[in-house]
């Protein structure tokens, strides 16, 4: 990719788990060898069932966790090696929006203080006066009223709180935002408001998103490209319309066929979901292809060799069915 703002290169994030002090040290392989790129002004969607490692991957990208192996490059720089002023600049430009707007805002701070805090930390703007002005501007951008500035988070609804956390994120003029399930805790009519707001600020401020969600409908709407993740690995990456119309990997197919469509006639015709069992424990990932234990098309080779991502049409897919 020509203008990639973010490059994830064979990243592995493992967490050590000890069952007892005598047991051999085990590793929970939350992210297991993932590579992809996100372009400038692009939205890259990441979907998968809970426990597939999508949130861990998001957190590795903003350097909340350090990768066990592999590297994350932001604007060509290895983020693991950033120090001092460079790290501070990275922290300013790469932001995160969290799922739960009830837990991610400090209940003892007013909305004004919440939004101003990142600017105070980074010593942005000359005076407190200017920061206050910026806060009012931000409130307007996210669709809140100027008099909300002195109120506390508990006085707001879920959708309004998510707007507050978006305003806080925008306070530092970020270039890249990891949105970790930003709408799944909200009501349907409010979800659309937040998605439209995210799209609006993307255009106005030229931001790239990594949009993590399990709701494929919303991901398809907002993303240009989508990656499907299963047990720590990306099994398919494709243009969002292409991935939705012509999914290649059996897991992507199953995931798509499970989305309920708000159309009774379509749903009546739909066959039962062809996916049995549940996602295996990431402590004990199956050999070869991780999906083979639930795959309706599993072959002997799937147990032996882990498939690599390969290009098929405009998509990339990691599956032996498409071996050349």
């Amino acid at each position: 990719m020509q203008n990639a703002i973010l490059k994830v290169d064979h990243v592995k994030t493992y967490f050590p788990v000890s069952t007892s002090i005598f047991a051999k040290k085990q590793y929970l392989k939350a992210v297991n060898d993932v590579s992809f790129e996100v372009g400038e002004h692009e939205t890259f969607g990441l979907v998968g069932e809970s426990g597939c490692g999508k949130s861990t991957l998001g957190r590795t990208i903003v350097r909340i966790y350090d990768p066990t192996e592999g590297k994350v490059f932001y604007k060509g720089q290895d983020i693991g090696r950033l120090k001092g002023d460079e790290l501070k600049k990275f922290r300013k430009e790469v932001q995160m929006i969290f799922q739960d707007p009830y837990a991610s805002l400090n209940a003892r701070m007013t909305v004004g203080e919440i939004i101003r805090e990142p600017m105070d930390i980074h010593h942005l703007y000359g005076s407190k006066q200017e920061r206050e002005e910026r806060v009012s501007q931000l409130l307007e951008t996210v669709g809140l009223k100027p008099d909300h500035i002195r109120r506390y988070p508990h006085e707001f609804s879920g959708g309004q709180r998510q707007r507050i956390s978006i305003a806080r994120t925008l306070a530092l003029d970020p270039k890249f935002i990891v949105c970790d399930e930003p709408i799944s805790a909200l009501d349907v009519s409010i979800q659309a408001q937040i998605i439209n707001l995210l799209e609006k600020i993307q255009d106005e401020m030229n931001i790239s998103y990594l949009f993590i969600a399990h709701d494929l409908g919303a991901v398809k709407h907002i993303s240009q490209r989508i990656g499907a993740m299963y047990l720590g690995s990306l099994v398919e990456i494709g243009e969002s319309e292409e991935l939705y119309r012509n999914p290649l990997h059996p897991y992507t197919k199953a995931l798509l066929s499970a989305i309920p469509i708000p159309d009774p006639q379509v749903m009546r015709k739909r066959a039962a979901l062809d996916l049995d069992g549940e996602i295996p424990s990431p402590l004990n990932v199956p050999t070869g292809c991780a999906f083979r234990t639930r795959c309706p098309k599993a072959m002997p080779v799937c147990a032996e060799v882990k498939p690599e991502l390969q290009t098929v049409g405009t998509s990339q897919v990691a599956c032996h069915l498409y071996a050349k």
């Binding site: 659309a192 409908g217 709407h221 469509i261 708000p262």
Partner: peptide, 13 residues
């Protein structure tokens, strides 16, 4: 609501 079946669907909140 997001109806992924719809082609370029504009959300009207």
């Amino acid at each position: 609501v997001n109806n992924p079946e719809a082609e370029d669907h504009k959300l009207r909140p």
